[in-house]
Amino acid sequence: MARAIERSAARLAAVQALYQMDVTGKTLPDIFAEFETYWIGMEIEGDQYNPAELAFFRDILTGVLDDQGPLDRAIDATLIAGWPLARVDSVMRATLRGGAYELKKRKDIPARVVIKEYVDVAGAFFGPDESGMINAVLDGMARQYRAEEFVVQA
Rank of each mutant, 00 (worst) to 15 (best):
Q20Y: 08
G98H: 05
R11L: 01
V88F: 03
T78M: 11
K107V: 15
E53F: 06
G98T: 05
G25I: 01
M1I: 12
V64N: 02
Q20H: 11
Q16N: 12
E117Q: 13
I80H: 11
D72T: 09
V113E: 15
L65M: 14
P128M: 06
I31V: 13
I31F: 02
F126T: 09
G127H: 03
P110Y: 01
S90L: 09
L96F: 03
P51I: 02
E45R: 14
D30T: 05
A142L: 05
M42E: 15
A17N: 09
W39E: 10
Y118R: 05
A81W: 07
A9Q: 04
A13M: 07
A86L: 11
Y145N: 03
L85K: 09
R106F: 04
G140T: 02
D89H: 13
V152G: 07
A55R: 13
Q20N: 11
V119S: 07
G127S: 08
A86I: 08
D66V: 06
M42S: 14
V137C: 07
D67A: 11
D47W: 10
A33R: 14
R87G: 03
R3M: 11
M92W: 06
A52R: 03
L96I: 04
E43H: 08
I109M: 10
R106W: 09
E130I: 08
P29S: 04
G41K: 11
V15E: 06
V15H: 01
D47L: 12
